[in-house]
Write a protein that binds this DNA or RNA. Structure first.
Length: 1137
RNA sequence: GCGGAUGUGGUGGAAUUGGUAGACACGCCAGACUUAGGAUCUGGUGCCGAGAGGUGUGCGGGUUCGAGUCCCUCCUUCCGCACCA
């Protein structure tokens, strides 16, 4: 084969590799393992464009290099096959998404194989394959059957927790109580601990489409398809308790070699802030109660989504101090407002409704077997009827309650927390069917039987309340904060709990701010401010999240209430403002305008006092936010540095019982449910409404065939309509499916052992490969996939299922390849007859105000437009004039009008590669023309992998020529074999060994662009020496093989080797060959390069100095004496005059 | 606003610990071979200047014998987060 014919040899070797399974990895104990992985591709219908292979080529080079370095290399590829485009295709066409997906996969694979990537295709996985998702389901069951033990900081089997409950109980219940709980009660409690749990969260519901939409399907508040309105709707969802791992996910970032940008993004996403929670007491000011208002009006306002920062939000109830929960039963009312409550209660008793009167007659005098009281104050509320012994509250609601369900729910949840069961009836129920009402009350009383009254919030129906309150998307999971109404009982005073990261500045807290959705807003608001506050809160609710984000101006309203700064003892006003977020911290802050810019802006706007407590700025001019400087105006903190003051303040706060040190996270638990067909079914069956995992031998739970992929209209997934699948002898199946990231969270483990039917990965194999050594992919996965996989991996590690803490040791984000668009300009001229004439104008004649249109890049060569091809493509322009410097073209004829070129030039611009810009480069075509070795090398040659850079097809000529020159070292133009057995000379050896060193160093650092350069230099040098020596060329073939594997295999074979070059040992670098014995020193005078002098490298500094002194430098020294000579051996000489 | 990245010839980029700025390649210019050139080969190519020389890594300042590289201020472009207490 005389001429270099890339297409021929590339096909030959690709077939060879496939047939011989050249890249099949084994768990070879003789070799060190190296795992190279590309991020899991989702096979989209569009196939690959030149941007996609960048990462694949880079990782392939690393994989091939490591094989030459005698590592056992695992380099697999597979597909993240579940996803929205396939779902949408199925909905649109009625065809099964699997066929669509498989077709796309085939296309992807075909393209990847043409690039000569050295994947071990025998390990291919596909997430939608039941053999794969069997184990995704299995891992889900492991999560379901695990809880996070905060004491060991480790996930443990839920059975360990159950055993502990059976033996020791927990803060809320005794062992005996636990053992007497019904199965349902136990399961509900355990749900608060499981790492996979059911909660409730808001989804994007589109009524018109009858379906739930993903965030990316919603644009500007309407559905992307059709533009229908989208509203938030609460749905029961599965969640994964990633928040339990928040701190470890953060800490272990230190141990992995990832781009700082990705680490920063994860750090930011987890959002840890350490500070203190501090209770601020309210001053005993006027409250709604004292104004004799009805109970309904002073029910604390519920947050919009039912979320509270209360203890009920904690998934780990056992963790907290739990103090508030153990209040003695006799203290049923809030002391601060007892006076008011008493008055109200008396009034209410006099003004009983008909229904209340009827019920009272049935309950009074222990007619039900237990003593009931009516209009009795409990906490901040007045209960219609209460049985204190059984802690059962009975409420009778009139019409008004229909409109305040949310408030009632909140009230119920608060009462549940302090241990009361609440049962509610309407007036009608009591009047029309008293008997049924009494039966229900009786049942509730019996349910509470056997429990010691008055101790646990978990007992009886209380659990339901707990559970209900917990099921919000934004569970403040890692929070173990107490109720916002804490302090009941213990202190007997109303408090507002704030979170601050700057407890040192507490003496500078001159006001407080509550989020508009804070539950105490309506409780504390004074009569005078009531209407204004209500108006503000209503406005804040109306504002969409978008508007609230866009809003920059300061807004807020005074509540009329005051609190006492626990350190200054001064009264400070409480404001309501939406710059404080309801779902972060406690939804309330102490405002320190001197040292927080937002507080400062607020204080300035509303003319509130600004107190300096840290020296270093001018708080009249701006807040001083820096954590540097000494404390002033702060009593016992005066003179301390900020760091010391923070510690001292927290210490003091804890000693005084005002609060405690506290860590907050922004991270939220991960929603794991999708209302879709095309995803992994949950291995869950509901018995009596409680979820149970299916037994192991029932796995995988396969996706059933469905009649239609269309949305059900009810918000449920299409699976819900398959009765025969949904209904099992054991109960009803979960009909949600798992999200796209389920499979991708652990796929890297499956590659280690893809066909195992008995385990998700064999333990020994997992211990051999451990984790991914080198991972490459796009930066868009920084906080999604990369965080979830770390979480799953840590979980599996905790449970002893994998052996490493982190899944991906080294990570690189590849940049994008941008397109170079070509544009031509359309100009307009009005001729004598006043008719508008449009014509195109060559770019060098360009004026500013022309209209530009994109031209397909294939019609442009070197910014010269092929006009004939253009008008063939866009026939609507066929009669247009194309004006050039020397004349114009029209209908294929050129009319010369003057001097200059007849070429029509385009304007180029770097843009994203996209169809609409006609700048997409198809790798298939490039490979067809230049060969895939040239394509691979050029992609690397463009620049550093991490950077985005434009694709310039012209540039590929450079590497194409290089490969031909390289070939030319082996064959002459007539196809004669040139390689000889001559001994290489020193120069040739130097070239070879410098290259060996350079390639090795650069690949280890992932500088693949400079590798290509150094190979070019080597080939240029050897070409210059006319070197055709086997001793030089054979090692060079190995050096080039990771980059251009096909040409390397071909020449390797021609050199007489029978085995693939893929496993040839990387040549050893021998330093002595590269040693120089002399150096041409650049000599600069006062830092400016003036002369050069060739000197032996063996000379000492002093000897070099002597040589310099003997030089004639007078031209540049102006006759001034040499002050100093600086000699850097082997580098430079600088003469100072 | 906060955080990160980035800025070097006409273009992509190189310069690994502070030591000859512009490697390698594209493009361009000139030449050779050729019926031809969108093939191949040779030479040249930061800018200003005829030259000597001057000047030059986003702007301005600093440290140093010496700065693309270190420090400070500001700016450009891109990405991420966005009232996180």
């Amino acid at each position: 084969m005389p001429q270099y014919n890339p297409n021929e040899i590339e096909q030959k070797w690709q077939r060879f590799w496939e047939k011989n399974e050249t890249f099949k990895a084994t768990e070879n104990p003789e070799k060190p393992p190296y795992y190279v992985l590309d991020m899991f591709p989702y096979p989209s219908g569009a196939g690959l464009h030149v941007g996609h292979p960048l990462g694949y080529i880079a990782s392939d080079i690393v994989a091939r290099f490591k094989r030459n370095k005698q590592f056992e290399v695992l380099h697999p590829m597979g597909y993240d096959a579940f996803g929205l485009p396939a779902e949408q295709f199925a909905i649109d066409t009625g065809n099964h998404p699997e066929g669509f997906t498989d077709k796309n996969i085939a296309r992807y694979e075909d393209q990847m194989k043409k690039i000569g990537l050295s994947f071990d295709w025998s390990r291919k996985v596909k997430t939608s394959d039941p053999k794969f998702y069997k184990w995704t389901q299995w891992i889900f069951i492991q999560l379901f059957e695990s809880w996070y033990n905060p004491k060991t900081n480790c996930a443990e089997h839920i059975n360990d927790l159950i055993r502990d409950f059976e033996k020791n109980g927990n803060t809320y219940f005794t062992a005996e109580q636990w053992n007497n709980f019904s199965e349902a009660e136990q399961q509900k409690i355990l749900m608060d601990y499981r790492l996979a749990y059911i909660g409730e969260s808001e989804v994007n519901w589109c009524e018109a489409l009858g379906t739930v939409l993903a965030n990316e399907e919603v644009k500007d508040g309407v559905s992307e398809r059709g533009g229908y309105p989208v509203e938030k709707r609460k749905m029961r969802q599965w969640f994964l308790r990633i928040t339990a791992y928040a701190d470890r996910l953060l800490q272990d970032l230190n141990d992995i070699d990832w781009p700082q940008a990705v680490k920063d993004m994860q750090t930011n996403w987890i959002g840890k802030s350490v500070g203190a929670e501090v209770d601020f007491r309210l001053t005993p000011g006027p409250s709604p109660m004292e104004r004799g208002e009805m109970q309904g009006t002073f029910v604390a306002e519920n947050t919009e989504d039912g979320r509270s920062t209360s203890d009920s939000g904690s998934p780990l109830p056992g963790r907290g101090a739990g103090g508030e929960a153990n209040d003695p039963g006799y203290m049923t009312s809030d002391k601060t407002i007892w006076g008011t409550l008493k008055t109200n209660a008396r009034t209410n008793r006099k003004e009983q409704t008909e229904a209340e009167q009827i019920l009272w007659e049935a309950l009074r005098n222990s007619k039900m077997g237990f003593k009931f009281r009516r209009q009795h104050a409990i906490d901040k509320y007045i209960a219609d009827f209460v049985c204190l012994e059984k802690k059962l509250i009975v409420e009778v609601d009139g019409e008004i309650h229909n409109s305040q369900k949310e408030q009632d729910e909140f009230r119920t949840s608060i009462l549940n927390q302090i241990g009361f069961d609440v049962i509610r009836f309407t007036n009608e129920e009591v009047i029309n069917d008293l008997e049924n009402v009494l039966i229900q009350i009786k049942e509730r009383l019996n349910l509470a039987n056997g429990l010691t009254p008055g101790h646990s919030p978990m007992e009886g129906g209380g659990m339901q309340g707990r559970f209900g309150a917990e099921n919000t998307e934004d569970v403040q999971s890692t929070s173990d904060s107490g109720s916002p109404l804490s302090g009941r009982g213990a202190g007997g005073e109303a408090k507002i709990r704030i979170f601050t990261t700057r407890p040192d500045t507490i003496f500078g807290a001159s006001f407080m701010v509550l989020a508009p959705e804070h539950e105490l807003v309506s409780v504390i608001t004074s009569q005078d401010q009531k209407s204004e506050v209500e108006k503000y809160v209503a406005q804040a609710k109306l504002k969409s999240e978008r508007e609230r984000k866009a809003e920059t101006k300061v807004s807020g309203v005074f509540s009329g209430a005051y609190a006492i700064n626990p350190f200054t003892r001064k009264e400070i006003p409480i404001w309501i403002a939406d710059y404080v977020l309801g779902d972060y911290g406690t939804g309330a802050i102490m405002a320190v305008p001197g040292h927080d810019s937002r507080d400062w802006a607020f204080a300035k706007h509303f003319n509130l006092p600004i107190i300096e407590v840290v020296e270093g700025g001018n708080v009249e001019e701006a807040s001083y936010d820096a954590k540097e400087g000494y404390l002033v105006n702060s009593d016992f903190l005066n003179g301390l540095l900020v760091d010391q003051a923070i510690k001292r303040a927290i210490n003091e706060i804890e000693l005084d019982g005002l609060g405690k040190m506290k860590t907050n996270y922004r991270l939220r638990d991960a929603n794991f449910s999708r209302q879709r067909y095309w995803g992994e079914p949950f291995p869950i069956v509901y018995k009596n409404g409680l979820p149970y995992p299916v037994p192991f031998d029932a796995l995988p739970v396969e996706l059933p065939e469905v009649e239609s992929y269309k949305p059900t209209g009810s918000g449920e997934s299409p699976l819900a309509s398959v009765d025969r699948w949904v209904n099992t002898p054991d109960g009803r199946r979960e009909t949600n499916t798992m999200p796209g990231w389920a499979g991708s969270s652990w796929y890297y483990l499956r590659y280690m052992d893809p066909d195992n039917d008995f385990d998700f990965v064999d333990k020994d194999k997992e211990r051999y490969w451990k984790n991914v050594d080198f991972y490459i992919g796009g930066a868009e996965h920084a906080t999604g996939h990369l965080l979830y996989s770390r979480f799953w991996n840590k979980f599996l590690f905790d449970r002893g299922l994998v052996s490493t803490k982190e899944p991906f040791k080294k990570l690189i984000n590849q940049g994008m390849i941008q397109g170079v668009s070509q544009k031509i300009s359309l100009d307009k001229r009005i001729n004598d007859q006043g008719i508008e004439n449009y014509y195109f104008i060559s770019s060098e004649l360009l004026k500013d105000d022309t209209r530009e249109i994109h031209v397909d890049v294939s019609l442009v060569d070197n910014s010269i437009l092929d006009i004939d091809a253009f008008i063939k493509w866009r026939t609507d322009y066929k009669d247009f004039i194309f004006k050039c410097e020397g004349g114009f073209w029209q209908n294929g004829n050129f009319t010369k009008t003057g001097e200059g070129s007849d070429q029509f030039r385009t304007k180029s611009e770097v843009e994203k590669m996209s169809k609409s810009k006609y700048n997409v480069i198809n790798p298939d075509e490039v490979i067809e023309k230049y060969g895939c070795d040239a394509f691979r090398m050029y992609e690397m040659f463009l620049g550093p992998i991490e950077q985005s850079k434009p694709w310039d097809t012209k540039g590929i000529d450079g590497v194409s020529r290089f490969l031909k020159r390289f070939w030319g070292l082996f064959y002459d133009r007539d196809g004669n074999w040139l390689v000889n057995e001559d001994k290489p000379n020193a120069e040739e050896l130097k070239t070879l060994h410098k290259t060996i060193k350079k390639i090795e160093d650069d690949i280890e650092r992932f500088n693949l662009n400079t590798c290509v350069s150094s190979l070019m230099i080597a080939v240029n040098d050897l070409g210059g020496y006319q070197c055709h020596k086997k001793e030089i060329l054979e090692p060079l073939v190995i050096l080039i093989s990771p980059f251009a594997p096909h040409i390397a295999e071909e020449l390797w074979e021609k050199l007489g080797n029978s085995l693939s070059v893929a496993y040839a040992p990387y040549p050893a670098y021998i330093e002595s060959y590269t040693a120089e014995n002399s150096f041409e020193y650049p000599v600069s005078v006062n830092g400016k390069l003036r002369a050069k002098i060739e000197l032996p490298l063996s000379l000492s500094k002093e000897q070099v100095e002597d040589e310099i002194k003997n030089m004639d430098l007078s031209k540049w020294t102006d006759g001034n004496p040499l002050k100093k000579i600086i000699v850097v051996p082997g580098k430079i000489v600088n003469v100072v005059v």
